[in-house]
């Protein structure tokens, strides 16, 4: 029983990482209706910027807002320069551009900061709670994820801009007719996704350490979480992220053949099984199609 609780808690703790990532994936999905393969790399790059700023001796409470602001403008810049001009190109062309972006950002980061694995100081201090069951960093991470989720929920539900962004993503033509600047909304969506990604990166980095490939597996789990929870639902994505963390930990502990190598495959397999029964994710809306 104690083992189970321990594994559950540590599952929730790692799930927090995935939830963070899943949240930023869903954010961008809401704004542009594409899955962005470069999302993780964008977050990694933001985290490197934060690290560089800390390295230059700036205090944490300046670094975080500054990083978020830089990432926000970076996201907008990427949309304006790279994605916007693509326009109505096919889904697969978008996917390839995302793969291209992934390669560019990853390569730039390893060129500027090389492949050394670096520790990243935790903004929440080093201690832990409940008899070493969960570290302050992990509690802080989960709390911030939930806070960001609440803010995003309010933003998309109650503000004019948030509603306009949803409308632009849902039905660009009607949104444009209603006077919404669809292009601008997409750019804002990218900016926000980059900003949320940078927060995720800074929260995750103290746990997984900082290096150019740190986000690869986290992005995969994040995708899995987002799709499991349903891409149309930010809260679902966060729940999905936590679920993936817990599933992964429990499978690793209780299913005998599974070593650490097989954790990801098992998690993915379970998710595919879930998807077969709930094709739009656990909390996703079924979209009724008109013929």
């Amino acid at each position: 029983m104690e083992l189970l609780i321990q594994q559950l808690v540590s599952g929730v703790a790692t799930g927090g990482i995935y939830a963070c990532m899943a949240l930023s994936i869903v954010m961008i999905y809401q704004a542009i209706h594409h899955l962005n393969f470069a999302q993780g790399e964008m977050a990694m790059f933001s985290t490197f910027i934060a690290w560089q700023l800390l390295q230059w001796g700036l205090p944490y409470w300046i670094v975080i807002p500054l990083t978020v602001a830089i990432s926000f403008s970076g996201g907008i810049a990427i949309e304006r320069i790279v994605i916007g001009p693509l326009g109505e190109a096919a889904v697969l062309s978008h996917a390839v551009v995302f793969i291209g972006l992934y390669a560019v950002i990853n390569s730039l980061a390893s060129f500027i900061w090389d492949f050394t694995t670096r520790p990243f100081p935790s903004p929440f201090g080093a201690g832990s709670q409940f008899g070493n069951l969960i570290s302050n960093q992990q509690i802080g991470m989960i709390a911030v994820t939930l806070l960001v989720l609440a803010l995003l929920y309010a933003f998309f539900r109650y503000t004019r801009v948030g509603l306009a962004m949803r409308a632009a993503a849902e039905n660009p033509t009607s949104a444009r007719l209603a006077g919404i600047r669809v292009g601008l909304m997409a750019a804002l969506g990218w900016g926000m996704a980059a900003a949320v990604g940078s927060i995720a990166g800074v929260l995750i980095a103290p746990i997984v350490f900082l290096e150019p490939n740190m986000m690869l597996s986290i992005l995969l789990y994040g995708f899995a979480g987002a799709v499991l929870g349903g891409l149309s639902n930010p809260a679902g994505a966060v729940a999905g992220g936590f679920a993936v963390g817990v599933i992964e930990n429990l499978a690793g502990t209780y299913v005998p053949v599974i070593g650490s190598e097989l954790k990801l495959p098992i998690a993915l397999l379970l998710i595919v099984i879930v998807l077969v029964f709930r094709p739009t994710g656990l909390f996703g809306r079924t979209i009724v199609q008109r013929v």
């Binding site: 001009p85 190109a89 096919a90 062309s93 390839v96 551009v97 291209g100 390669a103 390569s107 390893s110």
Partner: peptide, 21 residues
């Protein structure tokens, strides 16, 4: 050598501009 990923990515992105299909 150092920026091969960036070159590859730029080639991909440019290709998608020039010939999206």
């Amino acid at each position: 050598k150092g920026l091969s990923g960036a070159v590859y990515g730029l080639v991909l992105i440019t290709l998608m501009y020039v010939m999206p299909s």
